[in-house]
Design a protein around this nucleic acid. Structure first.
Length: 492
RNA sequence: CGGGGUGUAGCGUAGCCCGGUAUCGCGUUUGGUUUGGGACCAAAAGGUCGUCAGUUCGAAUCUGGCCACCCCGACCA
C-alpha cells in the first residue's frame, strides 16, 4: 500500500477511482466494464442490503427470484420499455461452443446451436415478471402482489466507472401489482420514502425527493419518482427510482383481474430499484483526502483498537486491560477489532483504518496504560481525545458513534445547502452551472427547453421536487411563465 | 461509433528521438533491529519489453499489421 491519495480538490474523479481501489472496495476485472467487488466493499453492500431488505419486509414485501434471461418476444412486448433498453442489451444467440476447425486450441460458437429465439440478458425484469404475473392473477383476491428481487442486471454501457456505472451491477427491483391506480401510486410514493429514509438515516446522505420530467422518465413508466443526492464536487447522483407503471405492462402482457363488481380490468403496476451505485454515493458524499468516511450504521467495523507496545508482555497487559471495554462494546452491538498484528506498526495501522473509513479508533500504549486512559480518534472530524477507561467508556463510545452518524449527515446537508442556488437569469445559470451545485430554476415545462439547456450546459433537470412551493415565475431559458422551480444540475 | 493516448516484473515507471538484451520506486521473500502517525539496515527472488511480421550482425528502441486498455464525446441506474 503506497502512501497518499490524489487530492480530492485537484482531481475529483482520480481521487474517487484511487479511493475505491485503495480502500479495497472494488477493482476492474478482466471483463470489460465489469467490476470485482472485493470483500470489504461487499460487506458494506451486505449491510445496505440488510437494512433495505428489512424495510421492504416491514412494508409488506417478500423476496422472490426470476430468470436472468428474457426471451426476445417477451422483451419486445412493452414497446416503450424495449426501445428504451434496446441499445444496451447483451444477447445470447447460441447455447454451446465447439473447437474451431481453423484455429487449434480455440473455441467458436457452434453454428448448429443457434437459438431459435434469442435470449436477452435482463437489463431490468419487468418483462419476465409481468409475463409471470399473468398466470398468478385472476381475481382482485390475488392482489396486491408485493414482490422484491435481489439480482444482477446487465446494461452494456459505453463508458463505465467502478460502482457508478458498470456493465453488470447488483440491485434490488421491486415489482408490484395492484387493483387500483391510487393504490399503485401510493406504493410508488411509499417506496420512494423508504429509499429517502434509507439514504438519510443509514447512509447519512440527504436527498431531494421528486418527479422526473418525461425526458428522464423510465421507459415504460407513466411516472418516475426519484431521490437525488449531491456529491462533494457539486454534481448530482440519482440514488434511487420508483416508477408508477400505470397499466402499461398489464396491457402488454394481458394481465387482467376480475373485480369485486365482476368487471374485467387491467392490473396497475409499480417498480422500484436501487443498485450498487449507492456505494458510489456513499463514497463520494463523505470521504476525504485520507480515505473513506463511513457512517457507523453501514461500517463493517465500528471500532479498531491499536495497541502500542514493546514485546509480548506489554501486548498482553494492554489486551487484558481492554477486555472489559471490548466485552461492553460487543454487548451493545458494536463491532470491535483488537489489532495485534505484529507485522505492521501503529502509524501504518492508523493510516489504514482511516483509509477504510472505520468510524472510531482507540489506541493504548504504556503511557495510557499507566494513566488508565485510552486515546479515542473519530474518523469524521479526525479529532483525537484522551478518555478515562472505566465502566462507562463503552457508553461513551456508543454515543460517539451516534454522534458521528448525525454529524456526517449534517455535514452533507450543510454542503448541499451551501451549493444550492436560486437562479433566475440565463446568464447566472451559465455561470453557476460551471461552479457546480443544484440550481433551483423556473422551467416552462417543455422538453424542447430542457433539451436545449442540456445541449448548451450539460445540465439536466434532476427532478421536480415534491416540496416545491407554488410561485409565479418565468422560465430561466425561454422566459415563459412557470409555477414551480425544478432542480437543474450536472449529473453522474 | 468519432477524436486523442498508452501497452516494459504483482503495481507504478525510466529507457525509445540517436538500435548493442532493461532503470528506479512500491510490493514480495529471508535475517536482524524497531514499534505514541504510513520504520530502518542487509541480502534475495521476479521481465519471451502487448502481439505478429519486416529491416538489421544485433530491435524495448526503426517500419507495418493486429489486439487490448485508458481518456474526451454521443448513451446511461
Amino acid at each position: 500500500m503506497s502512501k497518499g491519495l490524489p487530492k480530492r480538490s485537484e482531481n475529483y474523479s482520480e481521487w474517487y477511482n484511487e479511493l475505491v481501489k485503495r480502500a479495497d472496495l472494488a477493482e476492474n476485472s478482466a471483463v470489460r466494464g465489469c467490476m470485482v467487488i472485493k470483500p470489504y466493499g461487499y460487506s458494506i453492500w451486505e449491510k445496505m442490503q440488510r437494512a433495505l431488505d428489512d424495510m421492504f419486509k416491514e412494508t409488506g414485501h417478500t423476496n422472490a427470484y426470476f430468470p436472468l434471461f428474457v426471451p426476445k418476444s417477451l422483451f419486445e412486448a412493452e414497446e416503450t420499455n424495449a426501445e428504451g433498453f434496446a441499445k444496451e442489451c447483451a444477447v445470447v444467440t447460441h447455447y454451446r461452443l465447439k473447437a474451431d476447425p481453423n484455429n487449434k486450441g480455440k473455441l467458436i460458437a457452434d453454428p448448429d446451436s443457434k437459438l431459435e429465439e434469442e435470449l436477452i440478458v435482463r437489463p431490468t425484469s419487468e418483462a419476465i415478471i409481468w409475463n409471470t404475473y399473468k398466470n398468478w392473477i385472476q381475481s382482485y383476491r390475488n392482489l396486491p402482489i408485493l414482490i422484491n428481487q435481489w439480482a444482477n442486471v446487465v446494461r452494456w454501457e459505453m463508458r463505465t466507472r467502478l460502482f457508478l456505472r458498470t456493465a453488470e451491477f447488483l440491485w434490488q427491483e421491486g415489482h408490484t401489482a395492484h387493483s387500483t391506480a391510487d393504490e399503485a401510486i401510493a406504493e410508488t410514493k411509499q417506496m420512494l420514502d423508504v429509499y429517502a429514509r434509507f439514504a438519510e438515516e443509514w447512509m447519512g446522505v440527504p436527498v431531494v425527493k421528486g418527479t422526473k420530467t418525461p425526458n428522464e422518465r423510465f421507459a415504460g413508466a407513466e411516472d418516475t419518482m426519484c431521490i437525488e443526492a449531491m456529491m462533494q464536487d457539486g454534481k448530482a447522483l440519482q440514488a434511487g427510482t420508483s416508477h408508477f407503471l400505470g397499466q402499461n405492462f398489464a396491457k402488454a402482457f394481458d394481465v387482467k383481474f376480475q373485480s369485486k363488481e365482476g368487471t374485467l380490468e387491467y392490473v396497475w403496476g409499480t417498480s422500484w430499484g436501487v443498485s450498487t451505485r449507492l456505494m458510489g454515493a456513499l463514497i463520494m458524499a463523505h470521504s476525504d483526502d485520507n480515505g473513506l468516511v463511513l457512517p457507523p450504521k453501514l461500517a463493517p467495523l465500528h471500532v479498531a483498537i491499536v495497541p502500542i507496545y514493546k514485546g509480548e508482555d506489554q501486548l498482553e497487559q494492554i489486551r487484558e486491560k481492554l477486555k472489559p471495554l471490548m466485552t461492553g462494546l460487543k454487548s451493545k452491538g458494536i463491532t470491535v477489532k483488537f489489532d495485534d498484528d505484529d507485522q505492521t506498526r501503529p502509524g501504518f495501522k492508523f493510516a489504514e483504518y482511516e483509509l477504510k473509513g472505520v468510524p472510531v479508533r482507540i489506541a493504548m500504549g504504556m503511557r495510557d496504560f499507566d494513566n488508565g486512559t485510552i486515546e479515542v480518534a473519530r474518523r469524521d472530524t479526525m479529532e483525537k481525545q484522551t478518555v478515562e477507561l472505566n465502566a462507562q467508556t463503552d457508553e461513551f463510545i456508543k454515543s460517539l458513534l451516534d454522534d458521528i452518524q448525525t454529524n456526517i449527515y449534517q455535514k452533507a446537508l450543510d454542503f448541499r445547502k451551501q451549493n444550492t442556488f436560486i437562479v433566475d437569469t440565463w446568464e447566472d445559470f451559465k455561470k453557476q452551472i460551471e461552479l457546480g451545485g443544484f440550481l433551483m430554476c423556473h422551467w416552462d415545462g417543455t422538453s424542447e427547453t430542457e433539451e436545449k439547456i442540456k445541449e448548451e450546459t450539460k445540465a439536466t433537470i434532476r427532478c421536480i421536487p415534491l416540496d416545491a412551493v407554488e410561485e409565479e415565475g418565468t422560465c430561466v431559458y425561454s422566459g415563459k411563465p412557470s409555477k414551480k422551480r425544478v432542480v437543474f444540475a450536472r449529473a453522474y
